[in-house]
Amino acid sequence: MADRQTRRRDEGYGRLYRGSREGQWSWVLHRVTGVVVILFLFAHVLDTAVVGWGPAAYDRVVSIYKNPVVQFLEWILVAAVLYHAFNGVRIMIVDFWPRAARRHRELSYGTIGVFVAVMIWVSIVMLPRVFR
């Protein structure tokens, strides 16, 4: 056990990526939001598939999404999709135009700025549905 932990530390497992402060956080958020979205997608394919069983079955299943608690989770889901999308654009800019890496800090804050601005609009649209 102790031997395994030593080996882990020596080979760098468990302290992954370690870029700049901004790079590290965007990397963590990209992974977390990606996992959130794929796990939701698994459920979403199943609930949509119920449409093949007709109106009674489908309308009963989608009524879950009209619950205020679930609508709050939906707001988190939209935030996850949008962050992953905007940060993905930033990653592609740096990947395909390496000179952009010199301005990675500005790009990171720009990404967060765009995300926050869009989320203010998203919140104005979505959150009143939760608290209605």
């Binding site: 080979e11 302290r15 992954l16 870029g19 790079g23 930033r90 890496a101």
Partner: peptide, 11 residues
């Protein structure tokens, strides 16, 4: 140079 997306395997 995938500076941002890939994990470290620092040795």
């Amino acid at each position: 140079m995938a500076v941002d997306t890939e994990p470290s395997s620092e040795q």
